[in-house]
Simulated scan of single mutants.
Amino acid sequence: MYRPGRRTFAGALVCVLLAFTSLLDAAPASFEAAKVLARQQVWHDRNQTGSFYCGCDWEWAGRSGGRVNLESCGYVIRAQVNRAVRIEWEHIVPASLFGQQRLCWQQGGRPNCKRVDPLFNLMEADLHNLAPAIGEANADRSNYRFAMLPDTPYNHGQCPIKISFIQRAVEPRDEIKGLIARVYFYMHDRYDLRLSRQQEQLLMAWNLRYPPDAWELERDRRITAIMGHGNAFVRGERAWLPGHRNTAEGVRRGSPAQVSNEAARRPVIGNSRSRVYHLPKGCPSYSSVSAGNRIAFNEEAQAIREGYRKAGNCR
């Protein structure tokens, strides 16, 4: 039975609660949800301006992927045909780098961290650390360190990324070196990660030589609108100097108690079109329901009474 008063109230409630949760750093709940948000709200109009490592154009496909136009940047497939023609979401700071600094990784690797560690899930889903890249370039970059590689040839046609498999090192194109540095500073500062002296010196040099351009500033604004906080190293509000002491802001917010308390204050979100509801914790698509279809419920039982069913991907 349709109740216009209830629908109007629910719409108003969701606007208030969503505004409130943005102040609580309403980051995506999972990497899967983050990829959808990255496509829909950050990179949606950037597919004709170039992929991260190679500068290739692509056409969006599926919920968060894309099909690469290899000719747009002169990309030559090195070995992996299937991954070379698709867009993947690259962790600029590799998931293995921050995962290996967590106990969960020692006890079962990435799958275990995704299952038991709230902070790992926040780091994996942090939009500041994501960028669309050609799948093969993403795979070849692996979790290698960044370096200057003057004697290393290009391995992917005209794609300006140098990868030394022997040295396990990568030199990206100049256009993204500064952005990479500031993302590294942000992730290490926010999540209290260890940064080697060698990487620190190189990234500090890149940060100075390649200041933020218009797109990096816009990217930060878009991500801030979703997550509720920006990258202070992009905005010039914070500087990374030798001997930097991490603020560890994300570690405090990512504790199990903090995650649980914030989730408890967030509404159950229903999709009026699919008649499916999503819980604020454990449901990857919670943050990706379009605004026009969102219905807020005070509790799960209310959603069920209204004829909604739980999303099938909820854990």
Results as ranks from 00 to 15, higher is better:
residue 38 A to C: 06
residue 165 F to Q: 05
residue 273 R to H: 06
residue 120 F to E: 11
residue 254 G to L: 07
residue 223 I to D: 04
residue 228 G to N: 05
residue 259 V to N: 01
residue 206 W to Y: 13
residue 259 V to E: 09
residue 264 A to K: 06
residue 249 E to T: 07
residue 306 E to R: 13
residue 12 A to W: 06
residue 100 Q to T: 13
residue 181 A to V: 07
residue 148 M to P: 07
residue 202 L to I: 06
residue 61 A to V: 02
residue 9 F to H: 15
residue 85 V to Y: 10
residue 278 H to G: 11
residue 125 A to K: 03
residue 151 D to M: 14
residue 74 G to A: 12
residue 239 A to D: 14
residue 238 R to P: 15
residue 94 P to Q: 08
residue 37 L to D: 02
residue 244 H to E: 11
residue 9 F to M: 15
residue 309 R to A: 14
residue 274 S to R: 13
residue 66 G to V: 08
residue 177 K to H: 10
residue 190 R to P: 09
residue 303 A to K: 12
residue 32 E to K: 06
residue 102 R to N: 05
residue 157 G to A: 10
residue 278 H to I: 08
residue 129 N to P: 09
residue 93 V to H: 03
residue 101 Q to I: 13
residue 123 M to G: 10
residue 298 N to I: 11
residue 315 R to A: 02
residue 158 Q to V: 05
residue 61 A to S: 13
residue 173 R to I: 10
residue 181 A to F: 11
residue 62 G to D: 13
residue 46 R to V: 01
residue 282 G to Q: 10
residue 86 R to E: 15
residue 2 Y to T: 15
residue 91 H to D: 07
residue 31 F to C: 03
residue 137 A to C: 11
residue 53 Y to W: 05
residue 188 H to G: 08
residue 217 L to I: 04
residue 150 P to R: 04
residue 51 S to V: 03
residue 201 Q to G: 04
residue 174 D to V: 14
residue 272 S to D: 10
residue 255 S to R: 07
residue 153 P to Q: 10
residue 228 G to R: 00
residue 258 Q to M: 14
residue 224 T to M: 02
residue 310 K to G: 07
residue 315 R to M: 02
residue 159 C to G: 04
residue 290 S to Y: 01
residue 206 W to D: 09
residue 40 Q to H: 08
residue 242 P to A: 13
residue 70 L to G: 11
residue 11 G to F: 00
residue 176 I to D: 01
residue 134 I to R: 00
residue 157 G to F: 02
residue 302 Q to Y: 04
residue 101 Q to H: 08
residue 189 D to G: 10
residue 150 P to V: 14
residue 182 R to K: 01
